[in-house]
Write a protein that binds this DNA or RNA. Structure first.
Length: 421
RNA sequence: GUGAGUGUAGCUCAGCUGGCAGAGCACUGGGUUGUGGCCCCAGCGGCCGUGGGUUCAAAUCCCAUCACUCACCCCA
C-alpha cells in the first residue's frame, strides 16, 4: 500500500465516531451544568509559548514537539497540550475584564512525537477544563468534582484519584534545595537519568520507577511535610471539601507530573489496568503561569482528560446500536427508478432517513441491501405497481406486506412512518 | 532514544521438521425470471511486507531492511 496514515496517527472510522459522539455529548452536558464555556484556540502556536510555559527541561519540550520554521524564520509548533493556548487567549483577549473568573473548556487534538503504544498516540484528543482567576481551594475542589462527574457519567469506574501538593513559589524552592542536597549524597545509587534530574529538576526523581531510585526516594523528605502554612491550609481545605463530597482520594507525595508550571494542587486519575497507560486524567494548579506569559498575576487550575484512553477503558460499555434508516425504496425498471429517486428526495426534505439503490439492480439485490442497512420498511415499485397505482410496503421485521396508494405517495409514506415513531 | 514480538486473501488466522497457496468470515452470482436474514452450490480475491543469500526446490532456513504491535522512558 503506497499511502497509509503516519505512525501514531489514527483514522477514527464511522463506527468509532459514534462512540466518540456519545461520549462527547455526555461530557458537554456535564460541563454545561458546571458553567464551563468552550474555547477553541488554534492548534499551532509560537514554539516559545510552549517552551516557556511547559518548561525547557521537560520531555515534552525537549524532544516531543512537532516544530517547524515558517517562511519568515519563526518557529511554530503543533500544540502538545492545551493549557498554554488557553492561557494565551485569556491574556490576549483580556477575558478577565469580562468576568474575573473564567471557566473554560476545550476539546481537540494534541500532538507529541513519542513512540506510540497502547493508549499513546502522536495525535490524541483531550478535554481540557480550566478555571482561571480564582485561587481558593473551592475552585480546586470544584474542578476535581467536575472531573469525577465526567468520568462517572461516561461510565467509568475503578479509577483512583491521587492527590499531591507541590507547594508555591515560597516553599517549593526551599524544599527543592533540601531535596537536592539529600540526593547529592546518594548520587552513586541513582540511575543515570536521575543523576541528571537531581541537578535540573530534582522533584522528578520521585517519578522514577527504577528500583534503586525508588529506595532512595522512599527515604527522601516528603514535600507534604515541607510546604508552607498557606499551602498547607489550602491543601487541607481541599481535602475537606473532597471528603465532604464523598470523593475518595489517595495522597501521593511522589505525584509530580511532567510539566513545570504546576503549583500547589496536583492530581491524577489512574486506572489499575495492567500494562496500559494508567493516567486517564491529570491536572493541577498553575498560579504562576499567567504572569510568566506576560499576563496578570492571576491564579488558575485545570485538567486534561485523554479521550482515547477513556474510550479504551470503556470497552463495550461505550458502544451502542448503530442507527438504521426508516425506509428503503426499491425501484424495478427504468421508469420506477426515476420515480423512486424523486420520492426519496422529497421524503428527505421531511427529515426522514430513506435509502435507495443508485444503480439498476434486481429486487433480490435491493432487498439484501435494505436488510444490510437495517431498514425498517421497504417500498417496492415496478412496472406492475406503476400500472395499478399501488406499491407494496413491506415491514422487514414482521414480513407483513400491504398495498399503498402511489398517488400522493410521499404524503402516504410520511403518514405511515411518522405514526410508527 | 532502548528492548521484545508479529508481518500469508478486504478481515481473523492456519500452513513454518523446505516439495502445487489454504480455511472461516466478508463480497459477487445462482438455487428462488419480482422479496432480505438461515441453508446449499459456485465464483471473485495472494509479488506469503521488501531486498538479498542457502538449495534441484523457500511462505517455510539464514542475513538485511521496512512496517505494525507491545513494553521502557514520559505522559492524556
Amino acid at each position: 500500500m503506497e499511502f497509509t496514515n503516519l505512525k501514531g496517527f489514527k483514522d477514527i472510522l464511522p463506527e468509532d465516531v459514534r462512540v466518540w459522539q456519545r461520549l462527547e455529548s455526555k461530557v458537554r452536558s456535564v460541563l454545561r451544568s458546571f458553567g464551563f464555556h468552550e474555547i477553541k484556540p488554534p492548534i499551532i502556536e509560537r514554539t516559545e509559548l510552549f517552551s516557556r510555559s511547559i518548561g525547557l527541561d521537560t520531555d515534552i519540550v525537549s524532544k516531543e514537539m512537532y516544530s517547524i520554521v515558517d517562511a519568515k524564520g519563526k518557529s511554530i509548533s503543533l500544540r502538545p497540550e492545551a493549557t498554554a493556548s488557553v492561557a494565551r487567549a485569556y491574556i490576549q483577549h483580556r477575558l478577565y475584564d469580562k468576568n474575573p473568573v473564567q471557566k473554560l473548556f476545550t476539546f481537540g487534538p494534541m500532538f507529541r512525537r513519542e513512540r506510540p503504544q497502547k493508549g499513546r498516540f502522536r495525535q490524541f484528543y483531550q478535554i481540557n477544563a480550566e478555571i482561571l482567576g480564582d485561587s481558593g481551594p473551592r475552585s480546586d475542589a470544584d474542578l476535581i468534582i467536575l472531573a469525577t462527574t465526567i468520568l462517572n457519567e461516561a461510565g467509568l469506574s475503578g479509577l483512583t484519584l491521587y492527590l499531591n501538593s507541590l507547594g508555591c513559589s515560597q516553599c517549593r524552592p526551599r524544599f527543592r534545595q533540601g531535596l537536592q542536597e539529600y540526593l547529592s549524597q546518594k548520587t552513586d545509587v541513582l540511575c543515570s537519568d536521575c543523576q541528571k534530574r537531581a541537578k535540573t529538576n530534582p522533584l522528578r526523581v520521585f517519578d522514577c520507577k527504577v528500583e534503586t531510585c525508588n529506595e532512595v526516594v522512599s527515604d527522601a523528605p516528603s514535600i507534604l511535610d515541607h510546604i508552607c502554612q498557606d499551602c498547607r491550609g489550602h491543601f487541607d481545605s481541599l481535602q475537606a471539601y473532597l471528603t465532604d463530597s464523598d470523593i475518595f482520594f489517595v495522597l501521593n507525595h511522589r505525584l509530580v507530573r511532567g510539566l513545570d508550571y504546576y503549583t500547589r494542587t496536583s492530581f491524577e486519575f489512574q486506572t489499575e489496568h495492567p500494562g496500559a497507560q494508567n493516567a486517564v486524567c491529570g491536572g493541577g494548579r498553575y498560579d504562576g503561569l499567567l504572569k510568566l506569559l506576560g499576563g496578570p498575576d492571576h491564579p488558575a487550575i485545570g485538567f486534561a482528560m485523554g479521550i482515547e484512553r477513556l474510550i479504551d477503558l470503556l470497552g463495550d460499555v461505550g458502544k451502542g446500536e448503530s442507527p438504521a434508516p426508516e425506509l428503503f425504496v426499491a425501484g424495478l425498471g427504468e421508469k420506477a427508478e426515476e420515480e423512486v429517486f424523486g420520492w426519496v428526495r422529497d421524503l428527505r426534505k421531511a427529515g426522514i432517513w430513506v435509502e435507495m439503490e443508485y444503480g439498476s439492480k434486481g429486487l433480490k439485490a435491493q432487498m439484501k441491501k435494505a436488510d444490510r442497512l437495517g431498514a425498517k420498511k421497504v417500498l417496492m415499485v415496478g412496472d406492475d405497481e406503476l400500472a395499478s397505482g399501488k406499491g407494496i410496503l413491506r415491514d422487514m421485521e414482521t414480513k407483513e406486506q400491504k398495498e399503498i396508494d402511489l398517488k400522493n405517495i410521499v404524503n402516504e409514506l410520511k403518514k405511515v412512518l411518522q405514526k410508527n415513531e
